[in-house]
Computed example of a mutant assay.
Amino acid sequence: MYSAVREAGTPSAKPYERMVNWVYNPGDFNPSHLDKIIADITDRWTAQAARHGFGFRFVEAGDLTPACSDRPRLWRDGVDLLETRQCYIVDDIGNDPQAVSYLHAISRVIDASDSIVLNHAMVAPEWLERDKLAMVGRAAQLGLKVPRTVALPFRRHAREGLEIVRREIGDGPYILKARESGTGFGVLKADTFEQLRAGVDIAAQTGKGYLVQEFLPNSGDIRVALVEGEVVTSMVREQSAGRYLSNIAQGGEARAGADFSPVLDDCLRVVRELRASYLCVDFLITDDGPVFGEWCTVMANFSQFPEPARSELADAFFRWAGRLLERDALPA
């Protein structure tokens, strides 16, 4: 089992620095939008962080070199960032398998040190943070209503999974998406089995794992943010007219203060099961009631929420990060 936010605390003789480092691979972003994405997030994070005495910075994964000699080290421009205890967010979901493996190396060497990977916020295997099939399976085991889901075999075997799709899900419509992805990127709605088969043929060439889910007509989704076992805030995301994705990055619209009472018990059950200290849980809003979508750790960050939910979650986030950072450590 995984315990990356050091639930019980780990004694540290090193000073800590109130800094959040967001490690990312620029190759995962459209070059024409990368500067805007970084500017928007930096603006929101820097202002919120400063209110709590934190600094914030983006760090390209290619500028870092993890190592271990007498202890874990993370080199950047000749400086070992692990000389002081800091907080990190490691964006380890991507399209390049080698880059993703390297991001895992970075996050794991940080975990081996006394610094903190904030997106490893659950006492569970780390892949349970990002594998949508694993999430659906665990949620179903906990008694949550989930969409029927089938994971596709790899490469030339992918079509073999279509027989199971038809058996488990029927004749459509379907959703085809990567098992490990975010922001609604590459999520394809197929209205017919023929369309799905063509989509699967394309997906099989990408080298990523894919799954198929039943498409459930919905009016959007509700996201509930919980920090240290308590609900902090919520939002509803709705599709723009004529669209099927409610993700804000794909044109969805958000409003804060959604009524989360119908899913509260499910959210608390998930958090208790995963022993998650920070988690956002998503549910599709259907005519038959809420259906579990997925959960996200710190990658579902406060900057995605509209105000006043954004500031509410930012306050809870930085208080939580500060307590983790200061536990058994010395100020710089």
Rank of each mutant, 00 (worst) to 15 (best):
P31D: 06
G251F: 02
V200L: 02
L144T: 03
F154Q: 13
T286I: 08
A39L: 03
T233P: 01
V90C: 07
W75K: 06
R166D: 11
A50W: 04
D288R: 11
Y244V: 03
D191Y: 00
R167S: 11
S303C: 11
N218E: 01
G186Y: 03
A67M: 08
M1E: 08
P72T: 05
K36P: 02
C267E: 04
R327C: 07
D91T: 04
M1Q: 09
C296M: 04
I175K: 03
C87I: 13
D92H: 00
G242L: 08
L216N: 03
D63C: 07
L118K: 07
V236W: 02
T206W: 02
D111I: 07
R310W: 08
F318E: 09
S115L: 05
A151D: 04
Y16T: 12
D91Q: 14
G9P: 07
E163L: 12
T183S: 14
M1D: 13
A321L: 01
I202Y: 02
A309L: 02
P308F: 05
V136H: 01
G229C: 08
G143Y: 04
A121H: 00
F317L: 06
P306T: 04
A178E: 05
L274Q: 13
R310L: 05
V79P: 10
V200W: 01
R18T: 02
A4G: 14
L133W: 15
R223F: 00
S115F: 04
E83A: 10
V270L: 11
K145S: 12
L284R: 09
A134P: 05
P31C: 01
Q304W: 15
G62H: 12
P72Q: 09
E60D: 13
E238L: 09
D287F: 00
T233E: 06
I38F: 03
R76K: 15
R310S: 13
C68W: 12
V231R: 10
D315P: 06
G251V: 09
D131E: 12
P308C: 00
P31A: 02
F292C: 05
K132H: 05
F54H: 07
A39N: 14
A276T: 00
F54T: 10
D131F: 03
D43F: 06
E294K: 04
V165K: 00
C87W: 04
G252Q: 09
T286C: 12
A49S: 12
E294A: 02
E307L: 00
S219T: 14
K177P: 05
G172P: 04
A67L: 02
N119Q: 09
C280S: 15
Y102V: 00
L128S: 14
